[in-house]
């Protein structure tokens, strides 16, 4: 399945998804396509007016430009996602979009899509020792991913890679 992770640029979460035999839907791919597009000359991220207009499907025209840009980049991810993992309360170094409003709104959009979604917190249940008990969250995420039906093609690709890797 195509699993959207949030924060959308989290390498750890996307790695967990890939390990479980699913396809991670992440921001890096979207930005990568923008940056490599020789037709666009709007450095550093090559965010264009088209991206901002795409955001208008989800946000009001009154929203700040930076929020529209972020939602515009995230919209294609949202539209292709078949499942999602949302990690809350993670520090910025774990991956983030920088804008708290975009963050809240995008999580809302994921929930609204009605796809299988797991929400976990980075902090432990007592709210202490940030990340110290993250293995519990990882186990929860892995269990969720295991329960998701695998795309046959993706599964085969994954198995092929594992076999190749073991060789």
């Amino acid at each position: 399945m195509k699993v959207l992770v949030y924060p959308p640029n989290s390498l750890i979460l996307s790695d967990l998804v890939e390990r479980s035999g699913h396809k991670a839907v992440v921001l890096m791919k979207e930005i990568g396509e923008h940056v490599r597009d020789a037709e666009i000359d709007a450095p550093p991220l090559n965010v264009t007016e088209k991206d901002l207009k795409r955001a208008l499907r989800y946000v009001s025209v009154e929203e700040p430009a930076g929020l529209k840009g972020r939602v515009g980049l995230l919209a294609p991810l949202l539209e292709q996602a078949e499942a999602a993992v949302i990690l809350s309360d993670a520090p910025p170094t774990f991956g983030c979009m920088g804008c708290a409003v975009a963050d809240e709104f995008f999580k809302f959009l994921i929930r609204k899509r009605g796809i299988p979604t797991l929400e976990v917190r980075y902090k432990n249940k007592c709210g202490e020792g940030e990340g110290e008990r993250f293995e519990e969250s990882v186990a929860e995420i892995m269990a969720f991913l295991e329960r998701l039906p695998r795309d046959e093609k993706e599964g085969n690709e994954r198995e092929g890679k594992d076999e190749k890797g073991e060789e």
């Binding site: 709007a42 965010v47 972020r70 804008c99």
Partner: peptide, 14 residues
């Protein structure tokens, strides 16, 4: 700034 790059206008400032 907090991310002008997301507004698609950083190139203009530069």
């Amino acid at each position: 700034s907090c991310g002008t790059e997301y507004s698609g206008i950083q190139w203009l400032f530069n």
